[in-house]
Amino acid sequence: MEQINDLLTGSLGEFGPLIVVGSLGLLMILATLPILLKQQKDPLEKLRQENERGVVMSPGQRLRTGSSKDKLEKYKEFLEPKDEKEYSAVRQKLMQAGYRSRNSVRYYHFAQFALGIAGIAIGVIYYLLFLSDADDMSTQQTLVYILGPGVVGYMAPKYWVTKRQQERQTQIQEGFPDALDMMLVCIEAGQSLDQSIIRVAHEIRPSFPALADEFEMVSFEIKAGKDKSTVLRDMGERCGVQDVSSFVTVLIQSATFGTSIADALRVYASEMRDKRVMRAEEKANKLPTKMTLVTMTLTVPPLLIILVGPSAHGITQIGAAR
């Protein structure tokens, strides 16, 4: 045992035994995790679900349809949050980022888990290849090099989804005033609200595809027979933009009280145009403040060199002469 310890210490450094034990433990976890997570579905529960759906399949049909199921279905208990609020929050965030798949939450958590494990494996390999011979490496530095890539891999999907969510919301916010103006023109030309939504979705797709997708989804849900108020509220939740939520409230109130949709759209479109101008003015007013630091950094040092440089050079020459 002492010979093995001395061999590991001599080849991998002071933390050689700890690294080997940790690597073996990680490999054992990766090897046994699929077996632990694999859950056999109860045949009685499966039969009950089929009876509730009113579907009777032959064994051959079950084999053919079973191959098309999601491969992560058997791991859903591990990959999906148990808390309903947490699941709804992640689901809503993914929908606002443009991921509307039924299994998007499952894929999101799988990406976090897989990239985290891959990052830890990369950190271990990097430490064994390049840093194992370092004698002045502390325990904290070792953990940082090994666990750091795992933390980065785990947080990468969250950063990506948040970035996509912000970009999509910005695109919807920028294109919404133009979409309202076009919708107002369509309604005043005699088209219904449903027809105007389809027309606007078709026209703004080259410039604002995210907003066009939302309008198309609204039209499809209305055609499917879903209640218009519910469809509009769902659109406001999917977009996550305050302007869209206010627009949905205006349309619902207009339909509830029986007022003209064209008049409501005219007033709200005017407000959206003014709001867009105000956002542009706000960005323009912030620009001088943002440029101040850059301007000072680029102009003050050359100015000081020009003004103080000759005097400093003269002082050094006088001192050298004395």
Results as ranks from 00 to 15, higher is better:
Arg168Tyr: 03
Tyr268Lys: 13
Ser101Gln: 13
Gln40Leu: 05
Glu216Pro: 03
Asp274Thr: 14
Gly116Pro: 06
Ile222Asp: 10
Ile125Thr: 07
Gly119Met: 00
Val151Ser: 02
Lys71Arg: 15
Met182Gly: 01
Ser254Leu: 10
Leu115His: 01
Lys69Glu: 15
Ala31Leu: 13
Val267Ala: 04
Gln165Asp: 10
Phe220Val: 15
Pro206Met: 04
Asp133Cys: 00
Ile4Gln: 06
Val248Gly: 11
Tyr145His: 13
Ala210Asp: 14
Leu180Lys: 00
Ile19His: 08
Ala156Gln: 04
Ile261Val: 14
Met296Glu: 01
Asp227His: 11
Arg279Phe: 07
Leu7Gln: 11
Thr316Asn: 12
Ser192Cys: 09
Ser245Asp: 15
Phe247Ile: 09
Ala280Thr: 03
Arg91Pro: 04
Leu193Tyr: 13
Leu47Trp: 07
Phe15His: 14
Ser23Met: 14
Val248Phe: 05
Glu221Ile: 11
Pro81Met: 04
Ala111Leu: 03
Gln112Lys: 01
Ile222Val: 13
Ser192Thr: 15
Leu293Asp: 01
Ser58Gly: 09
Ala89Glu: 12
Phe113Met: 07
Cys186Met: 15
Asp42Leu: 06
Ile315His: 06
Ala212Asp: 04
Ser196Thr: 10
Leu287Gly: 02
Pro81Leu: 05
Ser270Ile: 04
Met183Ala: 10
Gly309Gln: 08
Gln141Tyr: 01
Glu216Thr: 15
Lys223Val: 13
Gly16Tyr: 06
Thr65Ser: 11
Glu80Asn: 12
Phe113Ile: 02
Glu80Gly: 00
Leu265Thr: 06
His202Thr: 09
Glu77Gln: 07
Tyr99Asn: 13
Leu72Gln: 03
Pro177Thr: 03
Ser260Ala: 05
Glu14Asp: 10
Leu7Tyr: 11
Met28Ser: 14
Val277Phe: 12
Leu184Ala: 01
Glu237Phe: 08
Ala212Cys: 06
Ala201Cys: 00
Pro43Arg: 05
Glu52Arg: 12
Asp6Cys: 04
Met235Cys: 10
Met137Lys: 07
Glu214Leu: 10
Val294Leu: 12
Glu73Tyr: 08
Gly153Tyr: 02
Met57Gln: 08
